[in-house]
Amino acid sequence: METSIIIAGFGGQGVLFAGQLLTYAGMDQGRHVTWIPSYGPEMRGGTANCTVIISDDEIGAPTVARPDVAVALNLPSFEKYEPLVKPGGVLIVNKSLISEQSERTDIAIVEVRANRIAKEFGSVKMANMAALGALLAKRPLFSLDDLLQTLHDHLPKRKHNLLEANKLVLQHGYEVGMETAVPA
């Protein structure tokens, strides 16, 4: 079993960190993992993305043409990755910044107001966590508790004051994911 995830958004939305958190969680669960960022010149002020692979077996190619899961935190990312998600896959859409709607019926789509949820609990910087919560609801790579444990274990101590808020945002995103019906 191998799952590929692309997380994409503006630089500064925590795209790379969200990917690293999933990667750490996969590693902590004893799975094979890779994380690779886009590192082109477009990173400055443009879009950033990273690809995470979590697998039961040794991982070959660290990049994919079509991901199993895509997280679009802004409109350019939605436009780029919405058509590429594999049939049967999952698309997480940050409804706070993306008003367009996907017409695909062959994937599970969760629209989550990630910025609003994050702001509610203290800072828009946690929008990435709302999206990850929604992701785990639709594709339980590991439990929400496992992810929270990973966040606790790998977040630098000086940032541990942010753990509680991040936890609440993750949980809220998770609930939105659980409440979203999957198309038949």
């Binding site: 590693m27 993992v33 690779i36 991982i59 660290p62």
Partner: peptide, 10 residues
Amino acid sequence: DGAIGQMMEP
């Protein structure tokens, strides 16, 4: 290549 330089793995 740059991919191995930039990627993360355990």
